[in-house]
Design a protein around this nucleic acid. Structure first.
Lengths: 205, 205
DNA sequence: TCTCTCTTGTGAAAGCAATCACATACTCCT
DNA sequence: AGGAGTATGTGATTGCTTTCACAAGAGAGA
């Protein structure tokens, strides 16, 4: 039966399911079984069925899941049916790469505001967007009603940046700074630190 | 008592502990308690103590942990006492950013080989390193004894790239391509896909 | 129509991970 | 020197996640 209270670990797998389903659509699949989906993801079929069962019944017994239907349902569950405007703070090498990444839009995101604190960069155009002064962040983020931000500033500036974002009603932060940031309850944070990911693997080498 | 068989989820937290310990060193701390460490990481003190207990006894009752000592022990456990040479495959915007990222060396990694398949890029110098032809990957990676690679190629090329890397004895892969790659047992993979991280958060918005 | 095969959705069971709580031991202060 | 305060390391417990196993439903072919 549907939504009691879904474990976060389950929510974390849904985007992976969605990503794979969209590849299946491109490949022309119309129906997929939990077995095939699990094979592609390296996840057990039972886990996929159990995960989906938190949200409803999406499959047909004896057949499997309608790929397009399940994809659209997952987009609905994840609130990525439309396109979220996203603020990017920090426009160094990484910020540039993110601003030019063309994979966001089809996944439900678009970088609409870019900020930096370097006077030499402010006013420049990156990926069709003007780089704004971080000093204007509060005003612009409020005006645009931004709820999602990507932080790509140096570690030393990360916490202060996040504090400003939180005050501007940003409620989801993707943090590329290699430092632990703290946020009030109700604000989501995801961290990406390549060194942390690499060190996790070297343990096994 | 020490190493029975450590859960992967515990291994995954060690780099975070290490990262925070190194910040504590910079701040001049000499001793830290599990309570303080946990406060900074958003992790319970009990969990930190339990995690560390898998590897030995590093603290002093009544006092806490010697920050430098624990840091060095974690580096030892994670096999990042030295510097691993790393191959970077794919030198687009993201590859550039990674090549120029100066945070790797102090964490135990150095990008020593860069590859791309674009004839216009091959031979160019990025971050002091020549971009090599992917066709030369097998030879160069073997010659340098590389065990770790970062994949920053388009999704369509990711699996083929990984297959080559695995044949070259690469055993740890940090994958930035937004696709699930498959590898034989014994090869570590970590995935970084910003869209997946963002979608995980939009569920709660 | 009937049977065989396939696959879902889901309680129950098993397996893991996080927290609790306390014995032990170290430090600091008087 | 001794007592109060503090923090570790760890068995026991609680809570969470994954896997198992099967009833029920759907389709295909005879």
């Amino acid at each position: 039966m549907p939504t009691d209270k879904v474990p976060d670990i389950v929510v974390g797998r849904l985007p992976l399911y969605l990503r794979t389903l969209n590849y299946l659509i491109e490949e022309g699949y119309e129906i997929v079984s939990s077995h095939e989906l699990g094979r592609r993801l390296g996840i057990s079929p039972a886990q996929i069925r159990k995960d989906l069962s938190h949200f409803g019944e999406f499959g047909k017994q004896g057949a499997g899941y309608d790929v397009k239907y399940l994809s659209s349902q997952l987009k609905h569950i994840l609130h990525v049916e439309g396109v979220w405007p996203v603020a990017l703070v920090g426009c160094g090498a990484l910020g540039h790469a993110l601003a030019n990444y063309n994979g966001f839009v089809t996944k439900g995101f678009e970088i609409t505001l870019i900020f930096d604190n370097d006077p030499a960069k402010i006013g420049q155009v990156v990926a069709g967007k003007v780089i704004h002064d971080v000093a204007d962040m509060p005003r612009l983020i409020c005006e645009h009603g931004i709820r999602i931000a990507i932080v790509a500033v140096p570690s030393s500036a990360a916490q202060a940046t996040v504090d400003v974002l939180v005050r501007c009603q940003v409620r989801a932060i993707l943090n590329y700074a290699p430092i632990n940031i703290s946020v009030p309850p109700g604000v989501q944070v995801q961290n990406i630190d390549p060194a942390v990911h690499l060190q996790r693997m070297t343990y096994y080498l």
